[in-house]
Design a protein around this nucleic acid. Structure first.
Lengths: 342, 342
DNA sequence: TTGTATGCGTTATCAT
DNA sequence: ATGATAACGCATACAA
């Protein structure tokens, strides 16, 4: 306790009343005379009294704090989600404690431990690329601890989730490329461990199938790392070695798309004339690159809001235990820019 | 207290010893028989005992939590700073509680209140654009509360700061444009309230002066909002209305630079042949746009590390009170890309 | 209408 | 070598 913070004790002493009277007066409890109530409140204000949240937390067994587990803040999409989370949390008197895992399982595990030590009331999770086993979450959920997964949601039972419709987003993007007249569309896929990668891949495949296009399995190319350099190298190699190179790319995210675009341009091919490109997530930079990149926009802010709203609901209804499993699916929007318009 | 968390009481009861014995055994205090020590530790492990950080916080008047006030997470630079902060904090057993102000003073004030309510041990601050009065910080510092400012540091006495050398960064960038043969270099300046804006402007002016270039005050153009759209509009208007338009732009940040580049290209001018452009901060996208944008790189991660290390030092030396004012200045690096090479 | 006592989980002080 | 007790700041059941 720094700052010589004033407590209800100080107020009680100065006013010659008991701490309970002060406590009650401050909370407008019934059975306190208007007179003392006023005195207490005035003095509290004068002394700039603020309740000690830690003491409250201990007393009430409730911290009004939620934990957020996120892979990386530098991901534009996640940073918008964070804003949505904070918005709803603060509006409801909750604090947010944030941990980046940097895509490391170890970090995910230790962050959760620390957060639990600090008595968080609930958890919002988008798990790491390394996370393939979900026991550390199910253990908590079995004890009725409120958890909401967002974006990267686990493929297990009885979870509460908020995602976007990755399948449809990918489907729309691929369909758009087809309709623009591209014939040989490859897919730069995301990390295998992530369900969102699988869903985007499925959307791509379905779109091809629905339009009687050949599905060449070799044209689904994994980009496990997810850096721009990776997709740059992959794309360059693929396009160089191939006399009949592909004429379109649907990438699992904008970073990969940007790397691919760079490779294609370096090979002297024109975007979108020779090669059409569509990305995913609509990063900040996507409209700034040349040509501007078409992309599937995900409503990050809204996802943060929705996930938080659900979590708070679970927290406050805690006693009614056992929430039903539920998944909210938000729709994406295909933003067509120059990179995919023949 | 959810999760039926086990406490030292549970351990004490089961072992028929007192809670104090358990507490001491767990901390390897002297005067506990090896026998009971082992018994306690074994049981603690078996029951997955974890100390309640909230109770500790109350008891010790110390939360092992630091607060971070930041304008916006979506700023690439700030998100790298956050990573640096987390790294050092976690390595030293501290938690991080993060608040975005969204550049609002009100949010800054309320965030600080909430954090203090939660008994944070210290504060890392990069203040909002609206913040012109620093009383809410000085009040705390007078009470010897540890605060370290980073990047956006206030122009007041007795503060502990970590910044980059904005003056030199701007100077180098401008000098580089001059050396490339550009003659009429304008400056898209940042928000007036921010000292970093002033320093960058000063660096720009000094470089012109040192190279016997005319300093046209009308070519220092404020971009108070800081969006890409803003600088796009400003640049377009300026270049259209001006027969003898400028031939180079030094922008206070990469977003503004990107907007300017877009405007210039739309007017049919070539970058870097007709117009050279340099930005500031080296955002993620800067190397991806066309042409790749030259930019002044700031060591964000290192800034986060340094600021946190200093804060923790202040926290742990608390009793020796009154830290000396101190400012660490990190150096920038000019990354020359195509946008500025004639 | 107000005060007293107790407890949230932990540790420090003072016994034994 | 261990236990009993008080305290951190607050809220509440029970007394008065």
């Amino acid at each position: 306790m720094k700052l010589g913070q004033v407590t209800i004790k100080d107020i009680a002493r100065e006013l010659n009343v008991s701490t309970s009277t002060v406590s009650r007066a401050l909370k407008d409890y019934p059975g306190i005379s208007d007179d003392t109530k006023k005195k207490v409140k005035d003095l509290a204000e004068k002394l700039h009294y603020r309740p000690n949240a830690v003491a409250l937390s201990l007393r009430k067994s409730k911290s009004f704090t939620i934990g957020v587990i996120i892979p990386e803040v530098v991901h534009f999409f996640f940073s918008t989600v964070i804003s949505g989370i904070e918005e709803i949390a603060y509006a409801n008197g909750y604090n947010v404690i944030l941990c980046q895992t940097n895509e490391k399982l170890q970090r995910e595990l230790s962050s959760i431990e620390t957060m639990l030590d600090n008595q968080i009331d609930g958890l919002l999770v988008s798990f790491s690329k390394e996370t393939e086993n979900f026991d550390h979450f199910t253990k908590l959920m079995e004890q009725n601890f409120p958890i909401v997964f967002f974006d990267r949601v686990p493929d297990i039972e009885n979870t509460v989730n908020v995602t976007v419709n990755d399948f449809k987003g990918a489907y729309d993007a691929t369909k758009h490329l087809i309709e623009q007249g591209y014939k040989n569309i490859i897919h730069l896929a995301g990390p295998k461990t992530l369900p969102i990668s699988a869903k985007r891949k499925d959307g791509y495949k379905q779109a091809l199938q629905d339009h009687q296009m050949i599905l060449n399995p070799e044209w689904i190319i994994p980009c496990p790392i997810g850096t721009q350099e990776e997709s740059y190298e992959i794309t360059k190699t693929l396009f160089k070695s191939n006399e009949n190179h592909p004429d379109a790319i649907f990438a699992s995210n904008d970073i990969a798309a940007a790397g691919a675009m760079m490779a294609v341009k370096e090979l002297g091919l024109k975007v979108p004339e020779d090669v059409g490109i569509v990305g995913f997530s609509n990063w900040q930079f996507s409209s700034m690159i040349d040509p501007p990149l078409s992309s599937v926009e995900q409503p990050g802010f809204e996802m943060g809001e929705k996930a938080t709203a659900m979590l708070l609901e679970m927290i406050e209804k805690k006693k009614e235990s056992n929430w039903e499993a539920k998944t909210i699916v938000l729709e994406t929007e295909l933003l067509v820019r120059k990179s995919s318009q023949k």
